[in-house]
Structures are given as structure tokens and as C-alpha cells.
Amino acid sequence: MASIRIDQAEGLRRLIEKPAPRQLTFLSAAPDADKSAMLLNFGASLAGIGASVLLIDACRRTRGVAAGLARIQAGTLLQASRGEVRLADAVLPMPQGFAIAALGQGERSEFTSRDRSRMETLFSGLAANNDILLADAELDNEDALPLTAMAQGELVLHVADNAASITAAYALMKRISVHYGQRSVGILITGAAGERAGAIYQNIASVAGRYLALEVHAIGSVPEDEHLARATRQGRTVIDAFPTAGAARAFRDLAGRFSRCGPPATGRRHAASGNAMLGV
């Protein structure tokens, strides 16, 4: 039987009171555009509190967070692990204060066992050299994450406030439970706040508690806000374009609670390798 927790502060505390580094792997049940907007704004809000943040696009079949960014052209982490490009060219600083990299895009089907070993080492090194690593991931045909190291961090399920997303979230939870067994999963809701977000949490937690071997806890919510969509169309984050908007306040609050629940950020710059640093 799963443990059901709805308190957001407790959920964040459970995410953060872990040995460093802070590694969060996101699986989204929301449309790709909503997922990307959430991750970019979350990354920017975490960078805004002084954390070094690396966002990795590990998607191949769906549209990942880096897919719409023209700057992700220099190379992938897979190519860097093979020595085909410099790591500094694959881990790119963004003007919002965080760095972003693509795992392999369409190349992942070509991973050899040696590639995978190198990628596991590289991923773990990047996680260790940044305050927070956010992975935009998806499950493969065998319900596994792209890299074993991704499952060693915290899993966060992103859910939007619509019936299709909630139904997709149930399916994702079942796949996680079958493949990874009993473990903790955080829930982040976008497009809803207050009582509505609480009701979504309750429904998801009820399903997890009755049918799945998952410990579900809420980590936060972001309300529906036209300013978020407007900022996205402008290629900006809402905390930059519309800092007083409800969504901007929600992202800042979420980042601030990360800061208060865990140890202070070290102020490290984004590590492109063991010794070299990428500035932002």
C-alpha cells in the first residue's frame, strides 16, 4: 500500500533532504509544449536563487525541452562522450542563468554498450558538478529510463489540469511501479492551484494508494496563467517577462522552498568537465 502525502512543504523536504547532488528526473503526462515551458521556467527560477542548474534533454521519441532551441546545434552529450565534440560545446549556457544539453536526440537507438557506459559516467559527473540537475526524460519500450543513473535520483511526474494528462499520469505511474517497484514519486501540477490542484493530487494519490507500489507526494503547483503562454511565445521565461504574474510567483515560490528545505547552493558554475567550467 502506498503512502499518500499531500503537504507540499513535506514533499519538497523529502526531495531536498537527500545527499548531494540534487538530481530530479521529470516524466511528463502533459503536452510537450507545457512540459518544456515548465522545465525552462523551473530551471530559470532555481538559477535565480543562486544554484548552478543543468537541464538535460533525454527525449528521443517525444519533443524534448531542447528541441525548439536553435542553440542546441553544436553537439550532444553522446557525441561528447565519444570525443567527437568538446563537452563545452554540448553543454550550453542560457541567458536565463542555467545550462542545457541534449543527451543524444535521435542517436539513442545507436547506443552501444560502450556508449552507454561512457554516458552513465558522464551523466553522473555532470550531476556531481552542478547544484541541481534536471532531466527531461521518457520511458522506453521496456519502461526504463534512458540511463540507469537517472533512476537513482528523484522521479517527478508532471501533470497538467486536463483529463487526458491525468489519465496519462495514471498510465505512467503504473509503468514506473511495474519496472522500478516501490519508490517515491513527486507530483508537480501545472495549470491549476489551490483547491483544484489539491483535488488533482488527491485523485492521483488515491489511485497510487489503491493499486500501485508508489509513495506519492506533492511538491507544488503552478496556476493557469496567460502570461506564461505569452512569455513562451516570446522565447522568454515568465519570471523574466512578467515577474508579477501568478505563474512567475509560483515558480519563484517553488524555487525558494527548494532553497529553504535544503542546504544552500554552493554557487558553483556549470561544470563542463572535471576541471573546465561553463559560465552563464
Rank of each mutant, 00 (worst) to 15 (best):
A137W: 11
D131A: 08
R22C: 08
Q105L: 13
L228P: 07
T266M: 11
A163K: 10
P223D: 08
D143S: 14
A169F: 11
L228C: 04
A144S: 15
S184D: 15
S81V: 10
G194T: 01
A241G: 01
F123N: 07
E142Q: 14
A70N: 00
R236I: 05
S52V: 11
S28M: 05
T121K: 09
F98G: 10
A66S: 14
A163W: 00
N141H: 07
T190K: 05
T76K: 02
E226A: 11
I100Y: 00
N162P: 01
L46V: 07
Q202K: 15
A199M: 15
P243L: 13
L147F: 07
R230M: 08
D225K: 02
R60V: 00
L145P: 04
R71S: 13
R249A: 14
R196C: 00
L172P: 09
G191A: 04
A127R: 12
A51N: 01
Q73E: 14
R230C: 00
K18R: 11
G48H: 06
L87T: 15
A272V: 15
H270E: 06
G106N: 03
L278A: 12
A137Q: 09
A2R: 13
P95M: 00
L77R: 07
P19L: 11
N41F: 03
A30D: 04
G153T: 08
L54F: 13
E142Y: 05
I200T: 11
I132S: 03
E142F: 06
